[in-house]
């Protein structure tokens, strides 16, 4: 038999309820999201703009955030969830402090990206699409960043590294982790 559902839809989740049920965790996050919503809520078709902004400023678009945005924009959350999961730039979970994006476009594939990935996974002890246990580095794959003449290409956060060889990876990763522990003030 089905489990009775007490949070029955009749009490359409109201904003306050929602925050209780889906905490937008950090208040600063809510402030950022509110500002984004306010700026773009009247832009025609602005959902993509809003999600792009949230992704880039908050770093991910969690389920509570989706519910929240739906509520504020009066848009079905199913539509928002559909958009968030359709585009590969949107993530529903936080990324690491740094992302290592390996280009798997044609030029880079032919130019040796698979070997780079293998090496990086070995060094970091994680898989592509995942984040290292210490939350520092996320490994990702992307499809051509338009720098094909320098294949194979890796994008570290916003920085582009071309003509990379597996042998150069350890140094690169050391540099990133160093920068990260510096910036986090340790």
């Amino acid at each position: 038999m089905a489990t009775p559902n007490h949070s029955y839809a009749l009490a359409a989740p109201t904003l306050k309820n929602l925050e209780k049920e889906y905490p937008l965790n950090v208040p600063e996050q809510k402030a950022i999201i509110d500002r984004i919503l306010e700026t773009y809520c009247d832009v025609p078709g602005g959902l993509m703009v809003i999600l792009n902004e949230i992704q880039s400023r908050v770093g991910f678009i969690s389920q509570p955030v989706q519910e929240y945005v739906a509520r504020v924009l009066n848009v079905p959350v199913s539509a928002i969830h559909g958009v968030v999961t359709f585009y590969s730039f949107f993530t529903t979970e936080p990324r690491g402090d740094h992302t290592l994006k390996f280009c798997m476009g044609t030029a880079c594939y032919v130019g040796g990206t698979p070997q780079l990935i293998q090496k990086a996974e070995q060094i970091l002890g994680t898989k592509t699409g995942r984040t290292t246990p210490d939350g520092k580095i996320t490994l990702e794959v992307c499809r051509c960043v338009g720098a094909c003449s320098q294949a194979p290409v890796v994008v570290v956060d916003e920085q582009l590294y071309g003509r990379l060889r597996p042998s150069k990876l350890p140094a690169l990763i050391r540099e990133i982790t160093k920068a990260s522990s510096n910036s986090s003030g340790e």
Binding site: C103, M104, G105, T106, A107, C108, Y109, R143, C144, G146, A147, C148, S149
Partner: peptide, 11 residues
């Protein structure tokens, strides 16, 4: 949108 991998003319 220039999505073709290996293409960057538009960019």
């Amino acid at each position: 949108d220039e999505g073709d991998p290996g293409a960057f003319m538009n960019r």
